[in-house]
C-alpha cells in the first residue's frame, strides 16, 4: 500500500511498470514495527474527525493547482463499460489535434488496448492498469501526468475505468466529469446509478444513430438525469456517425480557452 495515499499501488501498473510512490519503498511493511515503543493499556478515546477520502482530495487539489498553473483543461470521462468512451475520445482527438495539443490518461483493469488505440491517432497516452481496482484515484493520475510531459494550454482527457459506481467518489483534479450514457442502456440508468450523474457536469448521450431501432425514450432519460442534477448539460451524439459532435467539440474548446485565459490573465497581473 502506498503510505502517502493508501491506494494499494502494488497492484497498479502504468504502461506495464509497477507504480510505486516515491516514498513507498522506504516504508513498506512498516505497519506495526514502529508502534511498540511505549505501551499504554488504559482505554481512552481519540477524536479523529477526518474524512476517509481526505488524502485523495489532497492529491486532487495538487493536480488541479498544477493544471491551473499550466492552463491545462482536464476532463474525466466516466461511464459503464461499452458506452463508447474510447470511440468518442478518438473522434474528439481527430477533430482537435491540429489546433490544440492533447494528451490522454487511460484507465482499465487490464490491457493497454485503449492506449494503443489512442496512440494510433498520434497523441501521447499513458495506460494505468488498476489490477483489481475499480476506479482511478488522484494519486495514480498525478503520476501519469508526470509521465506525460504535458504542454501548457493543452487538453488532458482521462478515460476512467468503465464503471458507473466507484469513479463518482474520486476527485482526480479534473475541471469536469463528463458522464456518457449510451442509448443501448436503459433510460432509468441515471436513477439506478445516481452518484455518477450527480458528480458530472455534462452527459453525452451516445449511439443516437441507433434510436430508430430501439425503444429508448430520450426525453425520459434526460428527465431522470436532471432529477438528480438539474444543472446537467446534455449533448446527444453519435460518435460513429458524427452527429452532435460539433456541440461537444465547441464545449471542449470553450473550456480550453477559459483555462488558458486564466493563466494569461495571471501572467499579465504579475
Amino acid at each position: 500500500m502506498c503510505t502517502t495515499c493508501g491506494c494499494g499501488t502494488k497492484h497498479i501498473h502504468m504502461d506495464g511498470d509497477i507504480l510505486y510512490h516515491h516514498e513507498y519503498a522506504e516504508t513498506v511493511g512498516g505497519h506495526t514495527h514502529h508502534m511498540h515503543a511505549s505501551v499504554i493499556n488504559e482505554s481512552r478515546r481519540v477524536r479523529i474527525e477526518q474524512a476517509i477520502l481526505a488524502k485523495n482530495n489532497h492529491f486532487a487539489q495538487h493536480n488541479r493547482h498544477y493544471l491551473a498553473q499550466q492552463g491545462i483543461f482536464m476532463v474525466n470521462l466516466v461511464s459503464s463499460p461499452g458506452s463508447g468512451k474510447t470511440t468518442i475520445l478518438i473522434e474528439t482527438i481527430k477533430a482537435l489535434q491540429n489546433e490544440i495539443p492533447i494528451a490522454v490518461i487511460e484507465g482499465d483493469q487490464q490491457t493497454d488496448q485503449d492506449a494503443v488505440r489512442i496512440r494510433a491517432t498520434g497523441v501521447p497516452a499513458v495506460q494505468i492498469n488498476t489490477g483489481k481496482g475499480c476506479h482511478l484515484d488522484a494519486h495514480m493520475v498525478g503520476h501519469a501526468m508526470e509521465k506525460l510531459d504535458l504542454q501548457s494550454n493543452s487538453l488532458l482527457f482521462v478515460e476512467n475505468v468503465g464503471n458507473l459506481v466507484c469513479p463518482a467518489a474520486f476527485d482526480l483534479g479534473e475541471a469536469h466529469k463528463v458522464v456518457i450514457l449510451s442509448v443501448t442502456e436503459g433510460e432509468d440508468k441515471p436513477l439506478k446509478y445516481p452518484d455518477m450523474f450527480h458528480a458530472a457536469d455534462v452527459m453525452l448521450l451516445n449511439k443516437c444513430d441507433l434510436l430508430p431501432y430501439l425503444s429508448f425514450d430520450v426525453s425520459c432519460a434526460i428527465d431522470f438525469a436532471r432529477r438528480i442534477n438539474p444543472a446537467l448539460q446534455v449533448i446527444q451524439i453519435s460518435a460513429i456517425q458524427g452527429s452532435g459532435l460539433q456541440q461537444w467539440i465547441d464545449w471542449i474548446k470553450s473550456g480550453h480557452q477559459q483555462a488558458a485565459q486564466v493563466v494569461m490573465t495571471e501572467k499579465a497581473i504579475l
Binding site: 488504559e42 482505554s43 481512552r44 478515546r45 481519540v46 477524536r47 479523529i48 474527525e49 477526518q50
Partner: peptide, 8 residues
C-alpha cells in the same frame, strides 16, 4: 468520516 477511536 472517522469521528473517534477507542484506543489503548
Amino acid at each position: 468520516r472517522i469521528r473517534e477511536l477507542e484506543v489503548e
